[in-house]
Amino acid sequence: MTKPLLSISGLSAVSDRDGGAPILRDVALTLERGEVRGLVGESGAGKSTIAKALLGILPRTVRVTGGFVNFEGRDLLRLPQKALRDIMGSEISLIPQDPQTALNPGRRIEAQLTDGLRLKRGLSSREARARALTLLEEVHIRDPERVLRCYPHELSGGMRQRVLIASAFALEPKLVVADEPTTALDVTVQKQILRLIRGLQEAHGTAVIFVTHDLGVVAQICDSVTLLYAGKVIEEGRTSDVLSNPRHIYTKALIAAGPRYDRPDAGLTPVPSDVFDELRHEIRLHDGSRPHV
């Protein structure tokens, strides 16, 4: 068997701002090459913290207290800054949540798309421009020449998100971290963007960590899923298994809480309080067995 692309083990972290409150509890996750993994949970579950750890952009207030993030034999948590910089953008890249703020408002799309190609791949300006045009075509932008000349404010939210996707795939990374990339978009645009990410991912064999709070999105784009609560992995498995046959009562409750347009009588069941009691119990047990955390 080949080695996985990414293997996180025992990852624990505390918040220095909240008096050392744990925000990740012994997280383990293995990702194969070309796999799309959904990282789901409600607010405070730790899904974004894991994404940030993968990208080496954990805020200063978050202190890692243990564990490893092994990416192709290198531990991202213990790599020198220089080595980390070489990996980011080039081998691991990000599709950010907010297309409004992720682009530099003062630079044309061309400059922003070609930076990495020139600096990290050593392409000439002309080569980089040609590659940028191809990339924009790949994300189905109809008039790529014009878009290259645009400033971000001249593009719609959906167009900006396409540019950011093109940028994330520009250097042919092995892993793309998508941090709630469709939360700010309308449903029809969301569907196009999801299709785009899945299409590019399949074409290039890229692995994707897809952070979302929407189980519907997970069902349609992710091969496998990891559900978190309070920084702890509650359930993981193949998407179809977890959704059609959830093992943990929290997973079941979350599925039942979401409203559904096709089954108005099925959704909207509030998560029962004994589910939260059970989660708190599990977390107490977990914390109790690790006095150093």
Binding site: V187, T188, Q190, K191, Q192, L194, R195, R198, D214, L215, G216, V217, V218, A219, Q220, I221, T239, S240, L243, S244, I255, G258, R260, Y261, D262
Partner: peptide, 22 residues
């Protein structure tokens, strides 16, 4: 609009189904 809503059930074709004049 309805076709664009992802339901929490695996449907391998959903992503590739283009509805109307998307």
């Amino acid at each position: 609009l309805l076709d664009a809503i992802p339901l929490p059930e695996v449907d391998p074709d959903w992503l590739w189904r283009v509805s109307g004049n998307e």
